[in-house]
């Protein structure tokens, strides 16, 4: 524990700016993965343990598309679209068969998909790790704001994640399809009784969830190593975000992801040997006082 260093950091503008932006970037990438996870749970009550695999496949597809086209934008788009299609196939072929089934059955199916996809990645791309490399447009020196270091690439990532989060909120809050999705989350039988095609709706939810994870994988590919099994580590943190924010709450996921990112970035200065533990302590505290998470609905 180094409280002096932490105090020194929060009272120094350079440290405050650097650590806050570093927390935001960690949080925003987490949010994009967790948003899909919480959306799927909110509507379908499915805990998608294969969500980290969506992130991994999105990153690999983005990498291949980038190597083929040379365009980072097309790479990210390919990652997102590829995972939207994968999400639909995953839902139709596997998950749709276990709606309402024991959670253990859902877990087993998801885990099987994780293992199969990890092996498929090894077959298609090989066991080596890959790095996409920084797109030429972002191969620029970092900015110095109030003495703090802020890379332009990360500013772009934060803005894109915010735009996607905002777009998702608008989609769910203001559009007709968004209202149907929210209604289905409350009462799927009533939505179905009104003549709405819930099969299509559920596939759409998985497509959006998959797309978000795929976009996150593609966006992060220039700065992260691509390895088979890379989805697992982000899955655990995404679950923490989902639980803290409240299962099914997009806004909750955003706030929880940012809180977690900031805990990590400032925790590494004040509690260098206990940064991971701090995240779990935050989760425990929130769940003790609000078992349904920050914005989750109480289960009566």
């Amino acid at each position: 524990m180094d409280l002096d260093a932490l105090l020194g950091c929060v009272t120094s503008s350079s440290c405050l700016v650097t650590q806050t932006t570093s927390g935001l970037i960690v949080g925003m990438l987490l949010f994009m993965v967790a948003a899909g996870l919480t959306l799927i749970f909110g509507v379908l009550k499915i805990v998608n343990f294969a969500h980290g695999t969506f992130y991994m496949l999105g990153a690999y597809i983005a990498y291949s598309a980038f190597m083929f086209t040379g365009s980072y934008f097309l790479g990210v788009l390919a990652g997102g679209l590829g995972m939207a299609i994968f999400g639909v196939i995953f839902e139709r072929v596997l998950i749709s068969r276990v709606y309402g089934a024991n959670v253990l059955m859902q877990l087993l199916i998801c885990y099987a998909v994780v293992l199969i996809c990890d092996d498929l990645v090894k077959i298609v791309w090989g066991p080596d790790f890959y790095a996409m490399g920084m797109p030429p447009a972002f191969q620029v020196p970092p900015l110095f704001i109030a003495g703090g270091v802020v890379p332009p690439f990360y500013i772009m990532l934060i803005l894109v994640a915010l735009a996607i989060g905002g777009g998702l909120s608008l989609l769910l809050g203001l559009t007709k399809i968004g209202k149907i999705i929210r209604a289905a989350a409350h009462n799927p039988n009533m939505v179905s009784a009104l003549g709405i095609n819930t099969t299509l709706l559920y596939s759409l939810v998985f497509a959006v969830g998959g797309m978000l994870a795929g976009l996150a994988g593609g966006l992060a590919a220039p700065v992260r190593s691509l390895t088979p099994g890379m989805g697992f580590s982000i899955l655990i943190e995404s679950f923490i975000v989902t639980v803290i924010g409240g299962m099914g709450s997009i806004g909750g996921a955003l706030i929880a992801a940012v809180v977690l990112g900031l805990i990590r970035s400032f925790g590494t200065i004040g509690f260098p040997l206990f940064t991971e533990g701090l995240m779990y302590i935050a989760m425990i505290i929130i769940l003790v006082f609000k078992p349904s998470g920050l914005f989750g609905k109480e289960i009566v």
């Binding site: 650590q19 970037i25 990438l29 992260r224 580590s233 970035s265 260098p272």
Partner: peptide, 21 residues
């Protein structure tokens, strides 16, 4: 300064910024 990221950690950003500080 000493940073101890977890093995297989996807993100080293907070450790990097801590080193810079």
């Amino acid at each position: 300064s000493q940073g101890w990221p977890k093995l297989g950690a996807p993100d080293f950003t907070e450790v990097i910024t801590k080193i810079l500080q």
